[in-house]
């Protein structure tokens, strides 16, 4: 009972906390508040911890990973975006882009908190720990793809501002073009690694879990295509030295293709590969 109360409290608190986080990152980016610059990464870390407790609590109380409904997936996505961003911020040491990325986490969390239900009854197949690993790694991977696309978008914005000699807030506050490109590439590399794990866990778990499993399932094919597409991109960048605007455009197009694959294909064509 106590745990359910904690879950209910955190369910209300999380959107507010993400709003606070976005607000602090916004104050640091647009208004240059020194306290906001000082505190933002610490607040991010704190909220990630709280969100992790929330997800863990849900998993234990309802006895299944929180990935069985679209609204459970949304909170997991919000968490994935925050975690992936925290990693990239730490790796690249560029802290100016959080406002743009964490807004995504905020909107995912608000949608989740508004409609999420406390499901105690779910198919047994969704209680398997491999399912949790499969979905978590896949969602973290897609979150990293989303973040990469945001960096791609920011790169293109800055690219056009500099070329058009517009020296506004985007010019002044965003990291330089090469850093944005590097951050996007870190996100893509993370996404590729996580999707590889998701595919691996999927290939172990899916055939055992579903009688009608098929290697030709559109969602599976779509995921493999996305994985191969990003893998090719990483090799092209590393070996072929691809860089600049076109690469960042590809990052944005890759994201659009991923969204298409994960929504349209999933809704219209996928058979067994729907967990909710």
């Amino acid at each position: 009972m106590e745990h359910i109360i904690i879950i209910d409290i955190l369910n209300i608190a999380l959107p507010l906390l993400y709003f606070l986080l976005v607000w602090v990152y916004g104050k640091a980016f647009f208004a240059d508040f020194p306290w906001a610059k000082e505190l933002k990464s610490k607040i991010l870390f704190g909220i990630i911890l709280i969100h992790f407790v929330y997800l863990l609590d849900r998993t234990f109380v309802f006895n299944h990973p929180p990935a069985t409904t679209i609204f459970e997936i949304l909170t997991l996505l919000a968490f994935s975006v925050a975690v992936s961003y925290a990693f990239i911020e730490r790796l690249s040491r560029a802290k100016e882009t959080g406002y743009f990325i964490l807004n995504i986490a905020f909107f995912f969390q608000i949608a989740s908190s508004l409609f999420i239900k406390d499901l105690l009854e779910v198919p047994d197949v969704l209680r398997n720990p491999l399912f949790g690993l499969h979905v978590t790694s896949a969602l973290l991977g897609y979150a990293a793809i989303t973040i990469s696309a945001v960096y791609g978008f920011l790169y293109l914005m800055l690219y056009h501002e500099i070329r058009a000699s517009k020296f506004g807030v985007i010019y002044k506050k965003l990291p330089n073009l090469e850093t944005l490109e590097r951050m996007s590439f870190i996100a893509i590399t993370m996404a590729f690694g996580l999707l590889s794990l998701a595919i691996l866990f999927g290939f172990i778990w899916l055939p055992k879990a579903f009688d009608d499993f098929s290697y030709l399932d559109p969602k599976l094919v779509g995921t493999l295509l996305i994985w191969a597409m990003y893998g090719t991109g990483i090799i092209a960048k590393k070996r072929g030295g691809w860089t600049g605007r076109k690469v960042m455009l590809l990052s944005v197009f890759g994201f659009v293709f991923t969204i298409f694959s994960m929504t349209v294909v999933n809704m219209l064509f996928s058979k067994f590969h729907n967990f909710h």
Binding site: I162, N176, L177, E178, T179, R182
Partner: peptide, 9 residues
């Protein structure tokens, strides 16, 4: 300054 908005290093 402009060069620094383009190049990282």
């Amino acid at each position: 300054e402009l060069a620094q908005r383009i190049f990282d290093d």
